[in-house]
């Protein structure tokens, strides 16, 4: 049985798709068969970040509607043969997703994969609630600013009450906090919430802190998950996150303003 991970946030633009791409690639690089699904039907982005947009034939909605098989729709990553992408449909809307349809696709994928990463759309409507409905683990992506923190809190409430695990009274979804676009300099200047502030409000297990980095934009634009840029701070931070998720003990980095960290940023970023 695969472990189903939802990458969610409530708020848009905080880095869900970047995170989904990086974490699914990271899990695959560790040797786990991983599928990553774009739930943002109508606003397809994951294929761009993964650099497979020119190979999309069938999509998630086609599979749900029985117009294509999973094998036809899954796109194998060219850099890592353990990773497969299931793109969203750009021409449909989120109403095309149904609880039964999504459940069937996840069940079929579970037979072949170790991890299924669900890239949730923003908001708390149908696409987002379906992306998290079947999840075992949730990575809540949050920026260090108040509106993002509140939206994450709202999403945590939905995870705790409207998931399949909640409805069937099973063990609740495991929730992890991933703080992205973090800038220790701006925290020091009081322009940004600190890790402690965010944890104080959300009281969640911290999976990692991804520093604000030019490498993320560069990676997105070139269709390479940022985790593959192992010289960059963001790439290294995502590698740490994957190792932590898999149970390794890895000390948190990129939280404090250190001279060494600054040099790394200058030469590596």
């Amino acid at each position: 049985m695969a472990r189903i991970i939802v990458v969610t946030s409530g708020k848009g633009g905080v880095g869900k798709t970047t995170t989904s791409a990086a974490i699914s690639m990271g899990l695959a690089l560790k040797g786990h068969r991983t599928a990553v699904i774009d739930f943002d039907v109508g606003l397809r982005n994951l294929d761009l970040i993964m650099g497979c947009e020119r190979r999309v034939v069938y999509d998630f909605v086609n599979v749900i509607n029985g117009e294509a098989t999973l094998n036809q729709a899954l796109i194998k990553d060219k850099r890592c043969d353990k990773l497969f992408i299931l793109p969203a449909s750009q021409t449909r809307d989120k109403e095309s997703l149904t609880v039964e349809g999504v459940g069937k696709v996840l069940e079929d994928l579970s037979k072949d994969f170790d991890y299924i990463v669900c890239d949730s759309p923003a908001g708390i409507e149908r696409g987002a609630t379906l992306a998290m409905y079947y999840a075992d683990d949730a990575i809540v992506v949050t920026n260090p600013e108040v509106s993002s923190v509140r939206d994450s809190d709202r999403m945590l409430g939905i995870l705790a009450s409207k998931s399949r695990r909640a409805e069937q009274g099973e063990e609740p979804i495991k929730e992890y906090l991933l703080l992205t676009r973090y800038s220790p300099q701006r925290v020091k200047l009081g322009e940004m919430l600190s890790v402690e502030d965010v944890q104080d409000i959300l009281s969640l297990h911290l999976l990692g802190v991804i520093p604000e980095s030019k490498a993320v934009l560069t990676a997105s634009n070139s269709g390479v998950p940022v985790i593959l840029d192992d010289k960059s701070d963001a790439g290294q931070a995502f590698s740490d996150v994957v190792r932590r998720y898999l149970g390794e003990h890895v000390t948190h980095r990129f939280i404090d303003l250190e001279k060494k960290g600054l040099f790394n940023r200058l030469f590596g970023g």
Binding site: R150, D153, R154, L156, G157, I158, A160, S161, P172
Partner: peptide, 8 residues
Amino acid sequence: EQPVRSGQ
């Protein structure tokens, strides 16, 4: 025993 989240 769980946190009561925004919107609940």
